[in-house]
Design a protein around this nucleic acid. Structure first.
Length: 289
DNA sequence: GACCAGGCAGAAC
DNA sequence: GTTCTGCATGGT
């Protein structure tokens, strides 16, 4: 077992992994067990350090730093979105939350499955997909096993019926079609990443099962396009406290990007995490308009 | 046993 | 261009 340690200032592993941007990390002892690409890693935070145990020599400090976006100048980013009392409170409460760099295919597949779903059930769906189509990997703990996220080719080959049996429901044909596009190279993350946000989003929305919201999630969590501002039912409720005049989806989007600026997606992640805390209702939020 | 969920696609207006 | 409507199903 190898141990990798790296500095992690202005970072909260807990807030980052619990904020609804990734779905597979599981708490283990005083840390989290999950995947970095195909490598099983056990990460824990010790003050301003991130410690990682793994059997895989491919895991380096650079890869961890990149995945957890520890290269972001977080204080500088958050200063640009700290523009009203509501977001200010969220920034204070969840200091160290970072928007991490997910593997694009996993992000795409996960958020296609997130449609009209709740996170608990979504996690179950993803886990069943991994156990059916992923590759089993030892974790290092005696007897414990972990499954990699399925390759797009594996999902592309699967029958819609099998996907439905895993509980995907109406999402099954969407996921299969999206997997085909990725497997065939017709949807290429590297190319999307080089495109301007609006253009990449437009292309993503041609993928079956990917609409306005899911496209924004992929742009933000996998393509590093930080002006993307995903609006789900929760975020919409929050934004309606800012915008009182006919808050259509398009108007909320325009407002969010104008109000929070180039790193609007960071603001969104803090607000989303804030409103989903147990015991927090919209009535607890500040009245802004 | 209602009600809801990190929505989308297609049809109707 | 905007506004319905159906979709599958587990968690609370």
């Amino acid at each position: 077992m190898k141990k990798v340690v790296l500095p992690a200032r202005n970072f909260s592993l807990g807030h980052t992994l619990a904020s609804g941007q990734v779905f597979r990390w599981q708490t283990l002892d005083d840390g989290y067990l999950g995947l970095l690409g195909r490598s099983v890693v056990h990460v824990r935070q010790a003050g301003e350090r991130l410690e990682c145990e793994t059997r895989d020599s491919a895991v380096t400090p650079e890869r961890l730093r990149h995945y957890f976006a520890l290269d972001h100048d977080l204080p500088a980013i958050l200063r640009t979105v700290d523009v009203d009392p509501q977001i200010h409170e969220a920034l204070q409460s969840f200091a160290g939350l970072r928007v991490i760099r997910q593997e694009p295919w996993e992000c795409l597949a996960s958020f296609i499955c997130s449609s009209f779903n709740n996170i608990k059930r979504l996690q179950g769906m993803i886990e069943r997909l991994c156990r059916r189509f992923g590759r089993v990997t030892p974790t290092g703990d005696a007897g414990a096993r972990w499954w990699t996220f399925p390759e797009p080719t594996a999902i592309a080959r699967a029958s819609e019926r099998t996907l439905r049996e895993l509980g995907l429901g109406f999402r099954a044909p969407y996921l299969k079609a999206a997997a085909r596009l990725v497997a065939d190279g017709r949807l290429d993350a590297a190319r999307l990443r080089r495109q301007p946000y609006e253009q990449a989003k437009q292309r993503l929305q041609t993928v079956p099962g990917v609409g306005d919201k899911v496209a924004d999630c992929i742009a933000l969590f996998a393509l590093q396009q930080y002006e993307a501002f995903p609006i789900d039912v929760w975020t919409e409720r929050i934004l309606k406290r800012y915008v009182h005049r006919q808050p259509t989806r398009a108007r909320l989007h325009r407002f969010a990007r104008r109000h929070f600026g180039a790193y609007a997606g960071y603001a969104q992640q803090y607000l989303y995490h804030q409103v989903r805390q147990p015991g927090v209702s919209l009535d607890n939020l500040l009245q802004l308009c």
